[in-house]
Amino acid sequence: MSALAPLVSPSAVVTRLRAAGCVFAEDEARLILATARTPDDAARMVDQRAVGLPLEHVLGWAEFCGLRIAVDPGVFVPRRRTEHLVRQAAALSGGHSPVIVDLCCGSGAVGAALLAALPGAQLHAADIDPAAVRCARRNLAADVPVHEGDLYAPLPAALRGRVDVLVANAPYVPTEQIEFLPPEARVHEPHVALDGGSDGLAVQRRVAAEALAWLAPGGHLLVETSRRQAAATAAWFTHAGLIAEVSHDEDLHATVVSGRRP
């Protein structure tokens, strides 16, 4: 606990969070009290969490691949399962100083983790949401370009045919299923980061359709998806001219489809 612990009762915070339905109330109380700078700050944060604001938005950060990633209000919260996407992308990078593009970058968590894992990598990130772009610029070094726009549209033309690793944590929730998501996501995260169209694959199809033009020979496209959607995603990769593979991580409940340019 922080120095606030004598001033703010940890047990009272746990009780309040538990009453609000927080399953991991003890852990959340510890994080809130360790992050808050004053008792009033702690009280405000507890109130925010109790009414359903995602813990990461309350804290202002999320832990991802061992990094502390800033997460601004209204920005998609990086999930632990997406660490599988990072590991797969790093493994397929080719062992040199790769050129990496992170589409649908959100907070920039995936790009930041890949830069930490691959010293010397050249990264470009992009997102259509201005709030996400601002947040990603906070999380990435000043010399990393973060472009605002729709998928490939804002990327420099000079990257065509040069990208070794193209990652896209694109939305893959079918539109009609968004209403069944937990309120933390459905209410507080941008729908543009969740809504994958009628079958959940609309954005993935667009990413795959243009990937060949941007990838270097032997380069890889990787997307996160669900186990149920993986076969359809892989089929679209194949249709786009990529050699597709599916990878699962049972511990993280994560599925990644990768496609290699021949």
Rank of each mutant, 00 (worst) to 15 (best):
A157T: 06
P174G: 07
A113H: 09
S2T: 10
P6E: 14
G60H: 12
A29E: 10
V46I: 04
L242Q: 06
A25M: 10
L123M: 08
V207F: 05
E63R: 15
H124R: 09
R137L: 10
A116M: 08
A153F: 01
P54V: 12
L103K: 01
D72H: 11
V256T: 06
D150N: 15
V192C: 12
C65F: 12
A231P: 01
G197Y: 10
R227T: 05
E83M: 14
H191P: 07
G259E: 02
L194S: 04
N139K: 03
H124L: 13
V203Q: 03
G108W: 04
E245K: 01
S2P: 11
P78W: 10
T238A: 04
L85H: 08
D27Q: 12
A112S: 09
V99M: 14
N139P: 06
V51S: 11
L151S: 09
Q122W: 03
P174R: 05
L85A: 08
V46C: 02
D40L: 15
I32V: 13
A230V: 07
C135P: 13
A125M: 11
V86P: 14
I128N: 10
P10L: 06
S11Q: 15
D72V: 00
H253D: 12
A216W: 06
W214N: 00
G200S: 04
P10D: 11
V75G: 03
C104A: 07
G111I: 09
A235P: 02
G21D: 07
I178P: 09
H253S: 04
A209I: 02
L155D: 04
A230S: 09
A125W: 09
T82D: 04
P217N: 12
A141W: 02
C22G: 00
L155R: 06
G196M: 06
L4N: 03
V99S: 08
G95R: 15
G161R: 12
L201F: 08
A244I: 02
A117H: 08
V163H: 10
R80K: 13
R44W: 13
P119N: 12
F64E: 02
L215H: 05
T225E: 04
F24R: 04
A170P: 04
L114S: 03
H96R: 15
L92K: 03
W236I: 00
E63L: 10
H124S: 14
V256H: 01
E26T: 13
V165Q: 05
A211S: 11
C22T: 09
S93W: 11
A20G: 03
A153E: 15
A121L: 05
P174S: 07
L221Y: 10
G95F: 14
R16K: 14
A20K: 03
Y152Q: 02
R87Q: 15
F180K: 09
R162Q: 13
A254K: 04
L92C: 00
G66V: 00
E224F: 06
R261G: 00
R205V: 02
Q204Y: 05
C105A: 15
D249Q: 03
V223A: 05
S11G: 00
M1V: 07
T255Q: 09
T175M: 12
H191E: 14
V246I: 15
D127Y: 14
D143W: 07
E56R: 07
A126Y: 10
S2Y: 08
